[in-house]
Design a protein around this nucleic acid. Sequence first.
DNA 1: TGCTTCCTGCCACTTCTT
DNA 2: AAGAAGTGGCAGGAAGCA
Length: 756
Amino acid sequence: MGGKKVSPTPRTTREVTGEVPMATSVAVYNEGERGEKEGKAGREREAGHKEQKVGECESVREQASWECENRSCPLSSRGAGCMCVPVYACTASPCALSLTHSDVRTQRVRGGERECEGNQHIAAEMQQEGFRDCDSWSWCRMGRCGIPSLQDGLIAAPLPLSLSSPSHRRSSSSSSSPSPQRRRQTSKCSDEGALWKLDSTTDVKHRPFKPPRRDSSPSSSPSSSSSPMTAQTLMRKDIKSLLPLKCSKLSTDTPFHRSPPRSSSGASEGCYDGGLWDERHKLPNGSASQTAQILFSLGSVYNRPRGTEGREKIIRRPVSKPGVSQGPSLHPPSLHLPPPVPPPPPSEDLTAPSHSPYSPSDSLKPELICGVCHRLFSTAASLTVHMRLHRGSRSLNCCYCGKVFIHSKRLQSHEASCRVADIPSNSLGPPTLTMQPKEEPLEEGEVRVEGGVIVAQADITKARSGKKAQSLLARIQSDDAAAAELLAGDEHHFVKVVDGNVIYFCSVCERSYMTLSSLKRHSNVHSWRRKYPCHYCDKVFALAEYRTKHEVWHTGERRYQCIFCWDAFATYYNLKTHQKTIHGINPSLISSEKTANGGYKQKANALKLYRLLPMRSQKRPYKTYNDSLHNELLQPGETPPLPMPGLDCAMDSGDLLSHAQAVKSDPDDFSDSFHVAEPAEQSDHSGLPQLSQTDVSALTKHDGETEQGRTAFQSLSLPQLPPLRLKGDPGLVETQPSAGHVAAGFRAPGRETNTS
DNA sequence: TGCTTCCTGCCACTTCTT
DNA sequence: AAGAAGTGGCAGGAAGCA
Ligand SMILES: [Zn+2]
Ligand SMILES: [Zn+2]
Ligand SMILES: [Zn+2]
């Protein structure tokens, strides 16, 4: 990846077999194939990433170092605070590639009807895309920025229905049948109780869209509800004000109104004007104190006692630490949030003695897995005891929670936070670690099932089995062949039932997984049954998600948008760094729980202080095993994400051409599948609706044959394919709605590689 | 130290099977 | 049509690298 340079000495090499439709070459590097790392806290890396030509994936690395071309830009440091950071080589203003709010939206609009004016375009586009009739989501139609009304968040939490102005709010009675996404939101919300989320974008790609009424004055007044989160707005929400969601007190001239926040006049400016930047961050929005205010209100919201609707899905707290209260401690020291309302009931799990074998909270704890040997335990206490087996010689254990670290620095860092977390009740001090016999035949609460047979069981009657495990065990006992087969595993995995929970183990590396799907996903890093090649370079990934994330570096897409200032960032890390440094956000406020396995569990009271903008890339059809078995190629309908030019307005024709060349012409033969654009399309491909997955399904069904359906999908999706279309139509750019941005000297990803 | 990649539980959604 | 299985996105911390 950008920063992560290709290791000159790959851990293992792997020959590309003939069946791999990947490029030609040579050694394929499997970064992380298990090997010499064995034993390092059980966290060896399983690659999931191959590279065709080691050291030659320059396009990726170059992008990692994209910077504002204006070398004099005081903000060129690649830090969170620099607006140029993920802004790749902006040479004009407004930079069309900074992908902050307005760009993010306008870039998707291809109607070319007028200049970027914010969300109206996106609204129009969304309308085109079939997003209709959403009773819970709508873009601000008042302003230019297109911040969605916070309806979702409101729904999610017992918050005022009118965070937004009445004009923003949609009557719930007008709701059509809720979409699946809507259902998702709702269920999530119920789980999260008082949490109100600003995640208006997470599901935008699927969410029905109710076209907003267009404001007659697109230039928008300062009161338009299109500002980043301000203390005012948040506070207002918190107090259930019925006042409209107010925009920040910014004039339209403020950087907030044009994104990226660059000088609107200095077209030659390489990046955002530092002065403006400074001014900008002097604004209340950006101040730490304001942030604190915001968080104060947020905290008062999410600390509100929750209903019981989410009870079924109670988010577990981490493994209880010996002698450590599990009470909520979400308050960053600096934010002075009001004291939390005591967590609902009893929580025996929080108060039960650590040795209590079956405290309620333990029943589902995936955390109770030994990170070293993967054995699972019914209680934190038993795991703690067990963990002693793995200690002794090395002392890199957190003295508060016992967590093992490889690096002393990380241990110190962890202990610092761990100590802070433990302060309230950590009167017992660090646990005494004593060596235990090397192995115990079977530890409390452990059940071993191998080959479909329960080979050992500490005390199954005690086990508070998870529903699935209980069901599975019941089926096994009733001679359910399928269940037995499941437990028997296969060449790729085996299964154990521990404390009533089915745990899936990878046969190759013995990693444990709570879900079979996780295991199967993981197993591909061994088998490489499926390969996910980057559309822009020679990298190949074992997980679709890896590729998706990787391709962001080619496309320049910035989806993580700070709600305080609307800066958008390419990565979650960048966003967090930004919020930490600029807004003083304490990460602990927004962090979710982490399981021992490295998995993540959404914290019920986690705050979402950013918006995740929808992916530009079209959702790819799911691969099926059959697909992958018979054809390692990407599915034809599997379009690459819109490349950088996906920001349509961002590139000039030359850059587009360059970029077109940069994009692999035939990584997966997908280009073959795409018809060359028809002239009509070329002239106005913006009018083409993007097909939703539903559309694809519909097509597929209609055609009665998957491939046909996909083919139809492809041709309709043509606009998504940049190179072919852009190359022959330099004028295309000019049809973009944000023609004013066209001049931006975006340096296309990989351009250097191709032009040099 | 800063940044990228890896990782995995969970979820929504799609596709397949019955 | 319903249920099962498969798929991929997401969070956010750990690992790894420079
Ligand atoms: Zn494995
Ligand atoms: Zn790539
Ligand atoms: Zn910000």
